[in-house]
Design a protein around this nucleic acid. Sequence first.
DNA 1: CGCGCATTTGAGGACTGTCAACTTCCGTGG
DNA 2: CCACGGAAGTTGACAGTCCTCAAATGCGCG
Lengths: 258, 258
Amino acid sequence: MRTSDIERVKGLPLFTGVAPETFRIATAGAYLQRVPNGAMLLTEGDQVDFLYVLLDGTVELHGTWNDRETVLAILRPVSTFILAAVVLDATALMSARTLERCEVLMIPGDAIRTAMRLDTRFAVAVSRDLAGGYRGLVRNTKNLKLRNSTERLANFLLMQRAADNAGRVVRLHHEKRVLASLLGMTPENLSRSFAALQPHGVTVQGPMVTISNLAALERLAKPDPLIDNHAPRGGEIIADADAEVWLTERTRASAGSR
Amino acid sequence: MRTSDIERVKGLPLFTGVAPETFRIATAGAYLQRVPNGAMLLTEGDQVDFLYVLLDGTVELHGTWNDRETVLAILRPVSTFILAAVVLDATALMSARTLERCEVLMIPGDAIRTAMRLDTRFAVAVSRDLAGGYRGLVRNTKNLKLRNSTERLANFLLMQRAADNAGRVVRLHHEKRVLASLLGMTPENLSRSFAALQPHGVTVQGPMVTISNLAALERLAKPDPLIDNHAPRGGEIIADADAEVWLTERTRASAGSR
DNA sequence: CGCGCATTTGAGGACTGTCAACTTCCGTGG
DNA sequence: CCACGGAAGTTGACAGTCCTCAAATGCGCG
């Protein structure tokens, strides 16, 4: 494990302010794993033996029932997952699958639970992390129950915009089918929702979404601080410049082909 | 505050195994409040200054957006709520409203946060409580996204049955309109869902629901340990006898009036 | 260049919400 | 004790939302 990776893990909310000794205990038995695209890191129902830390790549958390499947979260570095199951030493309620090649740090659950007992500050940090996760799920539930699918998409775009770069262009980091499931709809309806947003200043070209009329989109989306978390995110920022280049090349190409 | 109330609070998962001194610190500034029916204990967006412990009555947690409202949870004694906001010293994401006359213990948030810093075991207990709440919300999200409304109702009845008494009769502790919102549907559709369950051995008479064919209902509901928490609950158990009396009196009365 | 997969588009149907009328229940006041 | 009024619950008709299936299109990779 590289020193830079250690620093990134140490920078997680989960470890801020904890004693160096605690950090050493927690990460002593940890090991870094490279995982190919499409791999199942964890299946719902499995006993959870590790806390996972995503250092590179994308991971989706999903749940299944009766031959149906739904995406519950899409994770980008640096983030931890399955902390609740680790704290309770329980079985997983969600499955975890890589959406691309990933680097994942696996910390033994025992080490986490021991560190909690030894270091109050770590236990408090775990509480804060779980409290944040809890509140994220409350927001998500309100989003699902109070808004229709187009409203959810509109707010997703606004949130992504704020998290990424606050520019005119939002890049989707994953397939649209995955996004559709995350937002609680089918891929077909995601397509139609994008079309429905067009009169509100949204245009889609592949994985790039352009918001040409922010005010109009916000008028439809009605973002709410009690549902949508517009806080700028810790993770890396997708360069706006790249997006613009991608788009202009596209436009030129399609213009030429007409 | 009665001694019996103190014992009930001490019996909460949140306080099991913590030092008596910690419990004393946490509950020192607490005060018991009687609240009339329909009172708002907390409005979303408010700063949360207290951890609430419901000792008697029923409380609903709900969220609003754009003139719509949805019930997120229905609480019965003994349970705590708004712990996540207390831990983070944040504003409430949910409003709390009494559904009947209630007794609520209010513990200052400062006391909780201080107790966490002083007693690792308490911090761990808070983590476990939050982890349990988090997992409850994950279950709820899967329920919402993977099942249609009739399936949700069927599983709700099975869960209520297991939690209450595992008898043939389930008593609804609240108005059907509240249950409808909790399950993510309109009162009208809840009515229709109950009607749809009739061929599967479910009959409704006022607040009493009779499950005459458990196997048939389970065949439709397909309960899943990774979604539905069928663990027998800590709270008081509604006597089956009462339910039966209620039903037979009803039946006799309506038979006589014909 | 062509194949395979993701995405889009269209048509039809299932599920859910809205509105209105009606019934039942329950507490109030005569 | 009974009549009344209001609210909750139910039912029906209709509309909107969302899903399913099928086919077409577009795009990336070999």
